[in-house]
Simulated scan of single mutants.
Amino acid sequence: MFVKSEAASALFAGPFALATLSAQDEPAFPALVTADGRVLDLRAAFGDGNLTVRDVLVDWDSAAARLKALAEGIDGRETRPLARFRVHAPVEPRQVFQSGANYRQHVIDLHVAHRAPDDDRPEEERRAEAAEIMDRRAAEDLPYVFIGLPSAITGPYDDVVLPAWAAQPDWELELAVVIGRPAYRVTAEEALRHVAGYTIANDLTDRATVFRRDMPQIGTDWLRSKNAPGFTPLGPWIVPAGSVADPGDLRVTLKLNGETMQDESTGDMIFDVARVVSYASQSARLLPGDLVLTGSPAGNGMHWGRLLRDGDVLEGSVTGLGVQRTRCVAEDAS
């Protein structure tokens, strides 16, 4: 799908963002996109015909200054309107780190919903208990992070195929961190220095296959439940970290067929961006272009008793990062 211009407001916060675009019958290319919808091909600007967004991120310290200068001098350069191009996922990461159970209200809701059969305490008491657990977890525990597959990523306006085997496909809109400097065993105080920017991810999940039924003691099966092709719509843009005043104060909103289902501030995170990035880096070496998904707030399909089906349209937005729109298409069982 070719991008449709937003309303008169800017496409994203700040003067520019990074994108991966293509024109009809042409290969995808890395682009600087201005907030008013102009496109500068970075292959020409960087003098590299094979350049990708990930290549730009590899030397983010110098690239960020160079991109800023290009954006400031955009009026003197040849640009094209964004409406001419198809928008792809903004980057092809080598690694995808995903954080679960990271929104306070969401986890409290889960705690209350999954009470023991013999627990007949009033809901208010159980909520107070859950809130105390969340406070203790934030102070004493560690984030919960697992690995996703880059092959699950698709563009922000692409159709999402719901596999025939997925009995309970669900949505999980998230703030996604894009790494710009290698990070290994960095502290939370250092972590944000390794972040190039932010984008939007919808971490689709088949609830029916989250837990193994053949061997319950194994626990969760994230490969099966989260990594079908196209199960992670990403983008549309990478907005530089310098244009995001506070990643802990962004609104995450998902609409299903125009109806708001998720609407929460990233301030509700149990572990903020810096702590999640730091934690992931304690075990793995985070590389430029890698993604760190930070968890999804309350309001997924299981909460509403309404899961995804053929023809559904998802619209996800995060403050200052733009809007992604995807349509769900049932896999042809034949």
Rank of each mutant, 00 (worst) to 15 (best):
D290R: 11
K4R: 15
G242P: 10
R121S: 13
V195R: 04
V107N: 02
V96L: 14
T199I: 13
S243I: 01
S265F: 06
L173I: 14
I133N: 04
A330G: 14
P297H: 01
T199P: 13
G316E: 02
P247H: 00
R251M: 03
H303W: 14
A245E: 13
E129L: 09
A274G: 08
S265R: 10
E92I: 00
L314Y: 03
G47F: 12
A45C: 07
L142H: 05
D48W: 06
N227W: 12
P216S: 12
V39H: 07
G258E: 07
A116D: 06
T205E: 04
P30L: 10
T326P: 09
R327F: 04
T253I: 12
G242M: 01
F46Y: 08
T260K: 06
R38I: 00
L162F: 05
R43M: 05
P297T: 01
L175D: 01
N227A: 09
L149E: 13
L110G: 02
D214W: 06
D170M: 01
I74D: 04
P233I: 01
E190M: 14
A245L: 08
K255P: 06
V252W: 00
V277E: 03
T79S: 00
T205N: 14
D120G: 06
I133K: 08
I74W: 02
L286Y: 03
L234P: 10
E123D: 02
L67G: 08
I218P: 05
S9I: 00
L142F: 07
L314F: 02
G76Q: 02
G299Q: 05
P15F: 00
V3E: 05
F231T: 13
R224A: 11
T232R: 15
M302V: 13
S296W: 09
L40H: 04
A69C: 02
P30A: 12
I74G: 03
M261D: 00
N50G: 14
L42D: 00
Y198N: 00
R86E: 09
P163D: 02
P90G: 09
A31H: 02
T187S: 15
V112M: 09
A298M: 12
R224P: 15
